[in-house]
Simulated scan of single mutants.
Amino acid sequence: MTMLDILMRRRRVTLTEAERALVIRKGRITDILGAGEHMLRRADVVERHDLSDPVFVSTLSDALTRERPDLVDTHLTVLRTGADEIAVVSKDGRLFEVMTPDHRRVLWTDAGPWDVERINLIERLDVNAKLGDRLTRARMTNAMTVVEVSATEVGLMLVDGVLTKTLTAGAHRFWTVGRKIVVKMVDLRWRAHDVTGHEILTRDRVSLRVNLSADFRVTDPVLAVTAVKDFEDALHRALALAFRKTLGALTLDALLADKMAVDAEAAEAVRAEMAAIGVEVGAITLKDVILPGDMRDILTGVVAAEKEAEANVIRRREETNATRSLLNTAKVMAENPVMLRLKELEALETIAGKVERLTVHSGTEGLMNDIVRLRD
């Protein structure tokens, strides 16, 4: 500072290329200074700003926009988004910020250059694939959501509770600001649904529990989701009601005798009801019939008695056959003495093989005479 500056109440302010300054004189903004040396009054207030932070932040921002629009146009870039608009701001070709609806941002123009891509959310909610990849790499995904749909599913997108789109297999990105987006996944593969422990009362008033199983798949995802609140719950109720009606018209003996016939009677009613809501039903089976404890003991006793009676019949039949065989053998021996003697010799051979010593009381001579007599 020179003597002349002191006498004229002046001061020098030097700014670098990375700085800008607001000059406030007597409470009013008079200028915005760029790089270089500037001569100011000693009473002037200087508010310095570093361009390394390109966002203009000052308590005088609104006053500057209102009172000195000429300075704003020269030095600042003002961005605003509408109620249904998103702005993707890039600085020198690189993503800088994603501005959500109803926002305002003031940037230093010299910190740019700035590029702005505006997106109308009323016209489209999906994010362009190229832009979505850029935002994902830059980790600027706060304003969007990513939904991945597998090859065996479809996604039903609801915007503010209204079904708007069906998503096929792949990755999908959507702007989520200002909207409530819900994607409901629907599996298109064949699946099994079980109804376990369902209680019914047969025609002869026997209470029992049954386990049912049905194979199904969704053929019309939109109809399946919109026609009923939960299509699997609807299938559960359809199976339970159809089989309760069918099984309740049968006696316990008929039910236990032929379970497959019961399945055929109830299947068509279930298939027709579920086809109306976009669900195809395949095989329906009655897997188990569970009897109460006392009834199970009774049936076990009945089965045991039946099997015992069958065993007695078989035993008597075998005894009769054995007796008839002995009678035939006796008749043959009575008519043929040689056969009788041969049987005696076979018995004697069997006995001789089991004892160490054998005594023949009639002697060898008597034995040979008997053989000769048999031969005569």
Rank of each mutant, 00 (worst) to 15 (best):
E349I: 03
E318I: 00
R357W: 08
L327Q: 12
A334V: 07
T364Q: 10
A334L: 13
L348S: 10
N328Q: 14
R317T: 04
K354C: 11
K307A: 13
L348Q: 07
R324H: 05
G353C: 06
L340E: 01
M368H: 07
T359K: 08
E319Q: 07
A334S: 11
E346I: 01
S362K: 13
E346F: 03
G353K: 15
T350L: 08
K354Y: 08
S325H: 12
T329G: 08
G363K: 03
N328H: 10
R316D: 05
E365M: 11
T350G: 09
E346W: 02
A347P: 01
T350S: 13
N328W: 06
E319H: 01
A347S: 13
D370W: 05
P337I: 00
L345I: 15
K307S: 11
A305I: 05
E356A: 15
K354G: 10
V313F: 03
T350H: 10
R315Y: 01
E306Y: 02
I371W: 04
A330T: 07
A330K: 03
N328C: 05
M339L: 13
R317Q: 14
N369A: 13
V360K: 00
A330V: 03
V355H: 06
A322Y: 01
A311Q: 07
T359Q: 09
M368T: 12
L348C: 08
A305E: 14
A311T: 06
N369E: 13
E310R: 14
S325G: 10
E346D: 14
A334D: 12
T320F: 06
A309M: 08
A352L: 06
V338Y: 06
M339K: 13
A309S: 12
L345R: 02
T329H: 10
S362Y: 06
N312Y: 09
P337W: 01
V332S: 10
A334Y: 06
V332W: 02
E319S: 04
A347Y: 07
K354T: 14
L340D: 01
G353V: 05
K343L: 04
N336V: 06
E365P: 03
D370H: 11
T320Q: 12
M368W: 06
K331P: 00
V355N: 05
H361E: 14
N336Q: 12
A309D: 08
L345W: 04
I351D: 09
T364N: 09
M333N: 05
N321Q: 12
T320M: 12
V332F: 05
V332D: 09
N312Q: 14
A309W: 04
R324G: 00
K307R: 15
L358Y: 04
A304E: 12
E344L: 00
T323F: 11
G363D: 05
V332M: 11
E310V: 09
K331T: 11
T323M: 14
E319W: 01
A309Q: 11
R316P: 00
E346K: 05
M333D: 05
S325M: 10
M339C: 07
